[in-house]
Design a protein around this nucleic acid. Structure first.
Lengths: 157, 157
DNA sequence: TATCAAAGTTAGCTTGGGCTAAACTAATAA
DNA sequence: TTATTAGTTTAGCCCAAGCTAACTTTGATA
């Protein structure tokens, strides 16, 4: 496997042009980063306790319960979960898929960060911030890279 | 140099606890991520053309000019730049320092991403998203790591 | 020097996400 | 069965950041 040796053929962009490209609107996903955070917590709660209550969500995201309620309504609206007042919360397939994706990104990022020597706590915090911003390609490459690195480590341990 | 071999002594946290820690409020920096974007563009504009005009900022950030004006007022307020209506924009030391930090983070991230095989365009876009979320420690480790890796590459080229 | 286009600004609105205070539900204990 | 209370929701607010429409300033040119 080769890294970092791609053909340098691309038209060289000025830094400003690169910034413009990066900030050009480009098919955002119908949900916000904050929604991803909520979905991730709900997913973990369901995995750990079987259900997700508003108090728990509010505790783990460090927000008030009215904020949770509001977001539940939005996520219901957007089809990420089925929500019935005073009853409960269930992830839809769509919601679960977003949540799972976040979960995996998080794991991968934490693994990588620890690998390069970042302390657990910081790794976790940074991963939580970064996970929303990864292009699928980046994800794939990072995955390959981590796998590759681990193999190497094992090889000369 | 060693990576990934830190003592595994830390108390093992549940995933939810980790999420809570990550989302616990913790000394945010008196400026927002969006401010960082503006400051970065202003910095690059000044480097490339000697000054930063509102139209340019608005073009490179893909926002309207009233949005730029508003943000200039805020950044003036917060001491990141000196702004005088219809006149011009100058970064203060504080503003320049934030901008420079973004610039460096961006460079480092792009370098790393390309290193693992991510295409330029994607690397740029992801870096732009990620750069706001890096703890100084992560930054330092990533830097060491990139340096280390490059050395390795050179060694067996 | 007067005019006019381009650049910048203000006014006033929208939206996402957050909060507190107050009202409501539901489930348990008496 | 009723009363209490923990949990949830509503109402009504705030703030950052965005937008369009309308206005002002500046500077170049006739």
């Amino acid at each position: 496997m080769k890294f970092g040796l791609k053909g340098k053929l691309a038209k060289k962009e000025s830094r400003l042009e690169a910034i413009r490209d990066a900030h050009s609107v480009q098919g955002r996903t119908s949900h916000t980063y904050r929604m991803e955070d909520y979905l991730e917590v709900i997913y973990e709660l369901i995995k750990e306790k079987g259900y997700a209550s508003a108090v728990d969500i509010s505790e783990y995201l460090n927000v008030s319960s009215p904020s949770v309620t509001k977001m539940m309504q939005r996520l219901d609206e957007s089809g990420h979960l089925n929500y019935e007042k005073y009853r409960g919360i269930m992830l839809t397939d769509q919601g679960a898929s977003v949540a799972k994706s976040m979960h995996e990104r998080h794991n991968l990022l934490v693994e990588f960060l620890k690998m390069i020597g970042v302390k657990d706590e910081v790794a976790n915090r940074d991963a939580e911030g970064i996970e929303h911003h990864l292009h699928p390609e980046t994800l794939k490459k990072l995955e390959q890279f981590v796998k590759y690195w681990k193999k190497g480590k094992k090889a000369n341990k």
